[in-house]
Each structure stands twice: as structure tokens, then as C-alpha cells.
């Protein structure tokens, strides 16, 4: 397998405050990778460093090339970042949100709408509804659908389980897995809910205060003493 995304010794800061102190991680093509950690460990900042919405240093390579430019350039290379709070345009309609997902692409979107419809059949009925009036779970689905419209090579999800009922969390992760298996989308997911994240991902990284504390195949981490105690709670 080849590495789709590689971070080597990445630092990031908010103004004068350092949030990442040299993070290195690798995401292979077709893989699902989870980033775990407590609040403030730098999980979100790692994603932000990749999409360059935070001041960063260090080497980031995507598909073999150094990742340059602002967030819009990163998006154009095929990285779909669903940020904290899902990045939904709540004043726009569901349909317009989907069109925005495909903003970087040219040509006819009919096929894409049909494909999105196969994963999220309810979207079709709600296409003219204002996105802000959707429920939390629906908004998370919409965010996934929007990211999918981008036809990304890498899908980055920031806390997709946040604020959702357990049943919906399972549903969201099921769809992420389907996208990964059926569409070949590589996924980098940041999660507080280590339990479900480790079930989904093949590889996982544990961040502590801006550094990678542990990494390895999910199955190994699940057995790991400190991970079990700190993040899985048994």
C-alpha cells in the first residue's frame, strides 16, 4: 500500500500558542485511520494543519507531493474536510449545500446526486429545506453527503459522533464504512469516542498534548493497557 497522506514533524500554533509539537502520521490509500485523544490533545488541530486553516510548519505530503496553498487549494486537490460543527451552511438549502460540496468539480452532477441519493435516500425529499432546520443527525448526514459530492480522495471527519444519539452514531459510522468500502474513499477520522473509532479504523493514533503518544493497528491499541484505561474505560 502507498501512503496517500504523510505528516512529518508537523507543528501548529494559534497565535503564540503552540498546539502541535511535531506530529508525524501516515494514512495509506484506501485505509481508515482514527486519531484519538483527550480534549486539547491536538486532534482537531491536526486536521486543521492538513487543510491549512491554522498556522503550521513541517512537512505534509499528499499523494506524493508537498501540500501547499490555503484551504481552498487543499480542497481542490481532493481533500474533503468536515470541520467541527460540520461546516453546514444553515441558511442555504440542502440542495445548495450539496452543490457547494461539488464546487471544485466541473461537469454534470446528475450521477453524483443519484449516488448520494443511494446512501441518503431522504435527502431527495428535503432538497429545498433550509439546512439549519434539519436535526443534528440529519445535519451530520448532510455533511457527509456534501463531502462525498466533492469526490474526495481523502475524507477528514472531525468528531462525527459529537452531540448525536448512540443509534445515530452507529448509523453515521456505518455509512462512513460503506463509503470507504464501496467508493474507495480514504478516511481520516478524529474521535473522542474511542470505542467506535477503533472498531471502524484499521490504524489509530493517540495524541497527548500535541504529540503522538501511541500508534499502531486498531486491534493492538484496543488491547493496550493505557488506551483501555484512559479512552475505553475498562
Amino acid at each position: 500500500m502507498t501512503a496517500l497522506l504523510e505528516l512529518r514533524d508537523v507543528h501548529a500554533r494559534y497565535g503564540p500558542v503552540n498546539a502541535l509539537h511535531g506530529v508525524s502520521l501516515t494514512v495509506d490509500e484506501g485505509e481508515i485511520v482514527a486519531v484519538l485523544g483527550a480534549n486539547g490533545a491536538g486532534k482537531t488541530t491536526t486536521l486543521r494543519a492538513i487543510s491549512h486553516t491554522v498556522h503550521r510548519d513541517g512537512e505534509i505530503r499528499f499523494a506524493g507531493n508537498a501540500l501547499r496553498g490555503g484551504p481552498e487549494a487543499v480542497a481542490r486537490l481532493g481533500v474533503a474536510h468536515v470541520p467541527e460543527g460540520r461546516g453546514t451552511f444553515s441558511e442555504l438549502t440542502v440542495w445548495e449545500n450539496l452543490r457547494l460540496g461539488a464546487y471544485t468539480r466541473r461537469g454534470n452532477l446528475k450521477d453524483d446526486f443519484a449516488r448520494v441519493g443511494s446512501y441518503f435516500p431522504w435527502l431527495e425529499d428535503r432538497r429545498h429545506q433550509q439546512a439549519g432546520t434539519l436535526s443534528g443527525g440529519e445535519q451530520q448526514m448532510l455533511a457527509l453527503a456534501r463531502a462525498f459530492m466533492q469526490r474526495p480522495r481523502l475524507l477528514m471527519l472531525d468528531e462525527p459522533s459529537l452531540g448525536l444519539a448512540p443509534l445515530l452514531v452507529t448509523e453515521v459510522f456505518r455509512i462512513v464504512q460503506e463509503l470507504n468500502e464501496n467508493e474507495g474513499v480514504t478516511v481520516l477520522v478524529v474521535e473522542q469516542n474511542a470505542h467506535i473509532a477503533l472498531q471502524l479504523a484499521q490504524t489509530a493514533y493517540v495524541l497527548e498534548v500535541g504529540r503522538v503518544a501511541l500508534s499502531g493497528p486498531s486491534a493492538d491499541l484496543q488491547q493496550h493497557e493505557s488506551v483501555r484505561r484512559s479512552y475505553l474505560g475498562y
Binding site: A75, G87, F89, E96, Y103, T104
Partner: peptide
């Protein structure tokens, strides 16, 4: 419109 409503989110989907 997206850029006016939420500039940060708009940039993430590739809006310049």
C-alpha cells in the same frame, strides 16, 4: 453566498 455566510467553511469546500 457561501463565502459571505461562512467564509471558513466555504474555503474548506474549495471556494476562493
Amino acid at each position: 453566498r457561501a463565502g459571505a455566510l461562512r467564509p471558513a467553511a466555504a474555503r474548506l469546500v474549495g471556494v476562493r
